[in-house]
Simulated scan of single mutants.
Amino acid sequence: MTAPIRVLVCDDQMLIRTGLVTIIDAQPDLEVAGECGDGRTAVDLARRLRPDVVLMDVRMPVLDGIEATRLLAGTAVADPVKVLVVTTFNLDEYVYEALRAGASGFLLKDAPPSQLLQGIRTVATGAALLDPDVTRALVGRYAARIRPTGEDPAHLPLTPRELEVLRLIADGRSNGEIAAVLVISPETVKTFVSRILAKLGLRDRVQAVVYAYRHGLAT
């Protein structure tokens, strides 16, 4: 049997933190490594406990979730820690700053438990997770900050189908939605996404969205 995914839960509201801990500990493949109520303690516990994923709130005392994420994704720990930001604050500078700080994913606290649990599993594998609705609003708000390169999309090292998939990623579409639009299987979409990231040297879907805007593939 594979070892369970170890999760550090960081939220300053005791009731919410207890709920997250209960949901996670009920899963056979997940395990709560620790919990805390501020960002500084999260960084200290991550150094000591070495969790696979940190669930991070944004607004907290002592050290907020953005700065804690920046430390965890940087040099504050021996190995960068995967951070999944879970917060009530939607579609504002917190989303943008959390992703810039190195968060691997972003979910809202009103997401159903199944989505949260799947988010933890997704981030633990090294993949990025960004709610499609958050993506659409995020790129809409911050697109002006992304300067186009002026490069002709036809010169990019992608096939016409891969360009089509990249445009849909930039539109915030999930793999399932892309599959429905292009009338292909979700597994085929995953293959296209992997190829796109590999060809362009991108880390995840978030970088793919920014890339698409910079190269005039999204509006």
Results as ranks from 00 to 15, higher is better:
1 M>F: 01
1 M>D: 00
17 R>H: 05
20 L>T: 13
23 I>K: 06
23 I>L: 11
28 P>S: 00
32 V>A: 00
35 E>R: 09
37 G>Q: 06
40 R>H: 12
43 V>A: 03
46 A>C: 07
48 R>P: 05
48 R>F: 12
49 L>Y: 12
52 D>L: 01
64 D>F: 04
64 D>R: 08
65 G>T: 01
84 L>Y: 02
91 L>I: 08
98 A>P: 02
114 S>G: 05
120 I>L: 01
123 V>F: 04
125 T>A: 04
126 G>L: 03
127 A>M: 06
132 P>V: 07
132 P>L: 07
133 D>M: 15
140 G>V: 10
144 A>R: 09
153 P>C: 02
158 L>R: 11
159 T>Q: 11
162 E>L: 12
162 E>S: 13
163 L>F: 12
165 V>S: 13
166 L>M: 11
167 R>G: 15
168 L>C: 08
177 E>K: 09
184 I>V: 15
187 E>C: 05
193 V>N: 12
193 V>M: 08
195 R>D: 13
195 R>H: 14
199 K>E: 14
200 L>N: 10
200 L>C: 14
203 R>F: 02
204 D>K: 02
204 D>F: 08
204 D>T: 03
206 V>R: 10
208 A>S: 08
211 Y>W: 11
211 Y>T: 12
212 A>V: 09
213 Y>T: 07
